[in-house]
Design a protein around this nucleic acid. Structure first.
Lengths: 360, 360
DNA sequence: TCCATGTGCGAAACTGTTTCAATAAGTTTC
DNA sequence: GAAACTTATTGAAACAGTTTCGCACATGGA
């Protein structure tokens, strides 16, 4: 009865339900010290029960967007961040940036638990963008309950992805890895290559598998029988703790391919780091890129980087992904449904110096 | 008299002075519509007269820290950002990220004018960190007037730097470029090199000049007469619009040095991009790094990058700089003076594969 | 002159935060 | 074992600032 049915639930209503005072409820809401664990829990339960949303988010368009990166230090993150910044400035909202874990930092990593959702909700943030971070179903649920919009950018796709995808307050944005694999391979085929190696570097996740699918599809479409000899070691081959870096693994894989009786004239590496490993292996064998062996990478992670032979690669539209992420999260937060809850943007081929026509 | 002398001025006091109600004052404060121009002016005058500061910033440690990057897409920015993120998480404040200008973006760039200061002040942000962005004296003044803490990270040092440095609400954090230049050169000298080239890449700013100072000092200390032949082209040599990239310029400069009758056995490049250019020039001449020519860079901008020969370089403690920036801005905002208003952190030598003892 | 229309403004209601005194619960002292 | 003393928890009330809503007044037709 402290809550009139026509208006939204207030802190008073929450306090009444929890059997505490408004003051205590406020303290719990903001994580201020000075309340017992039991009380805190009671208040929190009451909050979710009446569906309390802090005033700050009730006023539309005000709160910031919160972005969480898995790691910052790579070109992918930076470019996505650029897109996020551009779009949030355009929309007139602040962009609050976090990273799960700063390498070499004493602090314990950020854990995305219910308390975290609670804390950013209470600070009035409109929504969350998770970049290359696994999205657990319970997190999706927690965000829905708290009325927090959630957008995942290029999440490592796990088996539970489909469970989460049903949620109306959740959306994901990524790129089409299958199409990317297809583009890369078709590019090599168009250059006249027929023996095309596939090198994955060791952490072959779902994305890599999709790219591999594109590779096989392109070969099949061109009428090239795929030769399992040309496919790098499966990732299981290395004991977990002794696993070499993606680059080193790719170097070893490529070295093996080059030692074949009928070696490949081109190599598709599923990421740019692996591509560097492949190039190393080629050079180590006394061959040249792209004269003897063409190498194509994936991600365009190092375009800003000065290097001897610039790398042909598949570019994912990182800035556009960032931009779209903010737009989507704002749309989710404001209640208007986004055009789609699961977007996969198209990749594009960037042909540079590391690929060339097969020598006759 | 609505204002008791012991407590801070409230909206009520402002309203009383302006001869309006609290409600009207609130509307003016937040730029809500529904007041005449005359009233708005009266209230604004009253606000500055009583020195009103919005409550949001009065509560210490609450509001976010606002960071403005010149550009995001380089390792320097990312590492600084990591430090900023880590420190602000440690302090429990949000970090709002912006970039002056996203390349290839339709939007007009962000301009740091008075209106901007006003807008972030009214949003309750505690302070601003400017990364590699020129700090104009009037901006320092505007921030002081608005009670906004301002910290500049590695500002392009201009002639007006000293004017701003007097301000109590301003601090700057950078690294010691002179010492860095010294370290780099001493490292080469310690490896037995005596003919040491200096290559700047074209945009030689004040920082580069300091590094150059360190170079000369190290040579002098070792009793090596510095040979002006070994110093790359001055930056003025290129017409502005046709200027090559730092990398290309460094490549050309280095090529000239190598063509000398008595060529250098080592090259100090003032940034890592230039170092790559230098390496290119060495390779193009059929020589090898580090066997024939040692190359040292500056900034450790590309450490994450896989490459054939890893680059020896001078590392600026970017993460620490970021961390310190947040700590300083919070300290300024809370009123406690930072230990120093102008900090220069020490650089460190990272010896990797691109430098080696001079061949006998 | 009289009524519609609209604008500016403030009283009061509201929301959420902070202060501070009362109370409860545990600890130490004698 | 009781009294004195901490320490933690809590809510009543004071507070800051925002929003609602209706009043007052000007303006402009009829």
């Amino acid at each position: 009865m402290a809550r009139t049915p026509d208006s939204r639930p207030t802190l008073d209503a929450v306090a009444a339900l929890a059997g505490v005072s408004k003051a205590t409820a406020s303290k719990v809401l903001n994580g201020r010290p000075g309340s017992s664990e039991a009380t805190r829990e009671r208040v929190e339960r009451a909050m979710t029960q009446v569906g309390y949303t802090p005033l700050s988010r009730e006023r539309p368009g005000r709160g910031p967007v919160h972005v969480v990166f898995d790691t910052l230090v790579n070109l992918y993150s930076m470019k996505v961040l650029e897109g996020l910044v551009a779009a949030s400035r355009g929309a007139g909202v602040d962009l609050v940036t976090t990273v799960l874990r700063v390498p070499g930092d004493g602090q314990e990593p950020l854990v995305l638990d219910r308390a975290w959702v609670q804390s950013i909700t209470s600070r009035g943030h409109q929504g969350v963008v998770l970049v290359t971070t696994r999205v657990e179903p319970w997190l999706v649920a927690a965000c829905r309950e708290s009325g927090l919009a959630l957008v995942a950018v290029d999440p490592p796709s796990g088996p539970n992805a489909s469970a989460a995808s049903l949620d109306a307050s959740f959306a994901s944005i990524g790129s089409n890895h299958f199409a990317g694999g297809l583009q890369a391979t078709e590019h090599l085929i168009a250059l006249g290559h027929r023996r095309i190696g596939f090198v994955s570097g060791h952490p072959a996740g779902a994305d890599e598998r999709e790219r591999f699918g594109g590779y096989r599809d392109a070969l099949a479409a061109a009428g090239i029988v795929d030769d399992s000899e040309l496919i790098g070691e499966p990732l299981g081959a290395w004991p977990v703790d002794a696993a070499p870096s993606s680059l080193d693994a790719a170097e070893l894989e490529t070295a093996r391919l080059l030692a074949l009786a009928d070696p490949p004239t081109a190599v598709f590496a599923t990421n740019d780091g692996a591509a560097f490993g492949a190039i190393r292996a080629v050079v180590a064998r006394g061959l040249r890129v792209p004269d003897d062996v063409s190498v194509i990478g994936y991600d365009d992670t190092y375009s800003a980087m000065p290097m001897p032979t610039t790398l042909s690669t598949i570019r994912t539209p990182m800035r556009e992904i960032g931009r779209l992420a903010v737009e989507t999260v704002l749309r989710l937060a404001s209640g208007t449904a986004p055009s789609s809850h699961h977007v996969k943007l198209a990749t594009s081929l960037v042909a540079r110096e590391s690929t060339a026509p097969r020598r006759p």
